[in-house]
Design a protein around this nucleic acid. Structure first.
Lengths: 217, 217
DNA sequence: ATCAGATTGGGCTTGACAGCCCAGAACGAG
DNA sequence: CTCGTTCTGGGCTGTCAAGCCCAATCTGAT
């Protein structure tokens, strides 16, 4: 049996099928975020999503396929959030401050950690072949920060000597590390401090320290 | 049978017993670091440490007790490493650079992550009651950086306006986050960049930028 | 030397979970 | 309306790991 066209299409989903599949992914994402991949089993997911065992097998033959779908879903969520208009592509310091404030004020930050980072840490050493999906997501995430910083340079807001990729790595690392530390300490302070310090660092590259409404230290 | 003294001592270990227990913990730590907690089972540990099933049960009745011992062992290791003479309590920028260089050059950094951080992320959401042990370890770790930065201030090497706790959080978060990103990307660059940027930031507080052998940017 | 307690060996049981199957219901194109 | 396809329900089974037990051996203090 050879595929006639370029679209094998293992499952042609109807609208109802798509709805069920989406319901499974969303509930799986929530359960996994709250309890971790390993502590989330089929039965809990069945009850939460209101589906039966065979539906899971129908839409997600293996746990790996489900986890991949959850990763894709969470990645899309977090990337969409960061591309929200309010952050204007992170082309100014105030947007970064607003972004940091959001997560510092996000209750679940120090309870469950980052929706993507926690997931990544938990399964990166397992057999699950989810590496490429994760790498791609984090790469795009970093790209959002890097592009923003590059734009700050082009707009003359920060010095041309700043290294956008390095700074993007600092932001993402401070965020992920801060989330982990906050989770462990059950206190948001580590995240708050790390993000504040990272932003302060970027501020040292600002061409006019006071132009952004915040006085230099 | 009532204990005569105040020492219930659930198990008085002989030197042989202590050796076996230590062998188990060390091999468990290595296996867990390489493969994760969940992917490490009794059989692998039995073969690696050359012990039998009942020994595991004898020294570590539950997996939780074993994981706790591994956490304590790894925490002691990482804290001892950071207290090594060569870092002189992190009371100068050069020590931080040496520290960063060590991990950037450490092969397993972007393969397995941080010996403590990876473990923490993997099990923080599980039932295992290991929270206090982890919190204490990270608290001491942060304390090493904070104390170093405070000493830099007392020695007049950096401005008194720097916030030692905030900067300590930045270092630890950049390290943990950088480790995670490096693992995901299979590239050391994120860790290298994050640590470099964090050190650059501390450098902006230096009272004499060139006194430490490195020119300001 | 003796003996109580510590240590060791290997196998076994119980429980949990992922993956699978079959039959029936709903859907939707013609 | 009709029929092939997709969707759904609930139960079943194979696998695997954690925890446990009994019996044998070793240790070290007296």
């Amino acid at each position: 049996m050879v595929t006639t066209t370029a679209a094998p299409a293992p499952h042609e989903l109807t609208s109802k099928g798509r709805a069920t599949r989406a319901r499974i992914v969303e509930h799986a994402a929530e359960l996994i975020y709250a309890k971790g991949v390993h502590a989330t089993n089929n039965e809990q997911l069945r009850r939460a999503a209101g589906v039966s065992g065979s539906q899971l097998n129908h839409y997600f033959p293996t746990k790996e396929s489900l986890v991949l779908a959850v990763i894709a879903w969470q990645a899309e969520r977090v990337l969409t959030f960061h591309r929200d208009e309010r952050f204007t592509g992170f082309d100014n310091l105030e947007a970064l401050r607003e972004w940091a404030d959001f997560y510092v004020g996000y209750e679940r930050a120090y309870q469950e950690g980052c929706t993507l980072g926690s997931l990544a840490s938990e399964i990166i050493k397992t057999d699950l072949d989810v590496h490429d999906e994760l790498a791609s997501a984090f790469d795009q995430w970093r790209g959002i920060f890097r592009d923003g910083i590059e734009r700050m340079q082009r707009l003359g807001r920060i010095s041309a000597e700043a290294d956008p990729t390095q700074l993007a790595h600092l932001f993402l690392a401070a965020f992920q590390g801060g989330m982990l530390l906050a989770q462990v300490a059950r206190d948001i302070a580590p995240l708050k401090d790390a993000l504040q310090a990272a932003i302060d660092h970027l501020q040292t590259f600002a061409t006019s320290p006071d132009a952004d409404g915040v006085q230099a230290r």
